[in-house]
Amino acid sequence: MIDVQRLRVLRTVAEHGSFNRAAAALHLTPSAVSQHIAALERSLGAQIVARSTRGVTLTPAGRIMVGAAESVAAELVHAKQQVDQLGSGLTQLTIATFTSGGRLLLPGALAHLTAAHPDTVVHVREAEPEHSLPLVRQGAVDVALAYHFDGPLPGQLGPSSSLAWTALIEDPLHVVLPDVHPLAGREALDIAELAAEPWVLGCLKTEAYLRRYAERAGFEPDVRSTTTDYFFARSLVAAGLGVSLIPSIAQTPQVAGVRTIPISPPTPVRHIGVATILRRDHPQVMTLVQALRGEVAALDAKTWATQPIQPRSYVRD
């Protein structure tokens, strides 16, 4: 029998990358953490962590067990929620979302959800993917509306993960220019044409993405202004402080004095989707995912670059 506490210790070791840091997070001694891991390895008959002077890393068996540990922890949280709800007759559903995607897709989807399940109490939390996906794994939220760029999802979603990812839409990034800019009349722009421009950005992750694309185009972007709000970034562009790189779904509400222009292929995109726990039969979650699909399907095809929705789950063998 695998001890649940030892799985919790393993999850914490995987999160922190060392016995010492895991021990501090768990309020244990490093020796106690090491003993828990050693006992788990004995019960499995396999090595689950590789120890070195630089810390510890997971073995293939360790990655499988961390995925199992995430599933167990989330299911225990879910079971506790169900027990708490027995007396009230109400179902609690917690959704995490990033701002621009939530603003565009969630209101209509939630209206459909609450009409289909009137006894469901909905909670919405704003969170970026690097925060919302761990919350799904932990069982703290049921659904995360999230995104990633051309790299993997935060948290290394993969074969040993406890998460399922359902792709919803590809959200292209566009250049935003002052409407008096010499290039504002173009139908499309190569990002290399903007090498000499000052940049205004509305998201730190967008900045990292811009720098990768700029490096491919052979220049270092001159980032003059950074914000955490795409509307504010577009307002700064309208004021003449520079140009910006903005996802399509963050182009509303409109800002006077700017022009939005597509980027010539290869076009940078955000991949938007829904993260849920694998192998959980949750009618409200299924209804919400279907409603989000409906919201995507209703988008104006001339404005939004949509792709056929292909649910993609990462299931262990």
Score class of each variant (00 low, 15 high):
Pro60Asp: 14
Pro60Met: 07
Ala61Gly: 10
Arg63Ser: 12
Ile64His: 09
Met65Gln: 05
Val66Glu: 06
Gly67Tyr: 00
Val72Pro: 13
Ala74Trp: 01
Glu75Leu: 11
His78Met: 07
Ala79Met: 12
Ala79Lys: 11
Lys80Ile: 00
Gln85Val: 06
Leu86Lys: 11
Leu86Met: 12
Gly87Ser: 10
Gly89His: 14
Leu90Cys: 00
Ala96Ile: 04
Thr99Phe: 01
Ser100His: 04
Ser100Tyr: 01
Leu104Glu: 10
Ala109Leu: 01
Leu110Trp: 05
Leu110Gln: 10
His112Ala: 14
His112Asn: 13
Pro118Trp: 05
Asp119Val: 06
Asp119Tyr: 11
Thr120Val: 10
Val122His: 09
His123Arg: 11
His123Phe: 01
Arg125Cys: 15
Arg125Thr: 13
Glu126Val: 04
His131Glu: 13
Leu133Asp: 05
Leu133His: 02
Gly139Gln: 06
Ala140Gly: 03
Val141Cys: 03
Asp142Cys: 07
Ala144Val: 01
Leu145Pro: 02
Leu145Arg: 03
Leu145Lys: 03
Ala146Thr: 03
Asp150His: 14
Asp150Lys: 03
Leu153Trp: 14
Leu153Phe: 10
Gln156Ile: 10
Leu157Glu: 06
Gly158Met: 12
Pro159Arg: 15
Pro159Ser: 09
Ser161Asp: 06
Ser161Tyr: 14
Leu163Tyr: 00
Leu163Arg: 12
Ala164Ser: 12
Trp165Pro: 00
Ala167Pro: 02
Ile169Leu: 14
Glu170Lys: 06
Leu177Gly: 00
Pro178Lys: 09
Val180Gln: 15
Val180His: 14
His181Cys: 05
Pro182His: 05
Arg186Pro: 03
Glu187Gln: 15
Ile191Met: 09
Ala192Arg: 15
Glu193Ala: 15
Glu193Gly: 06
Ala195Gln: 05
Ala196Leu: 15
Leu201Gln: 07
Leu201Phe: 03
Thr206Pro: 01
Glu207Ile: 02
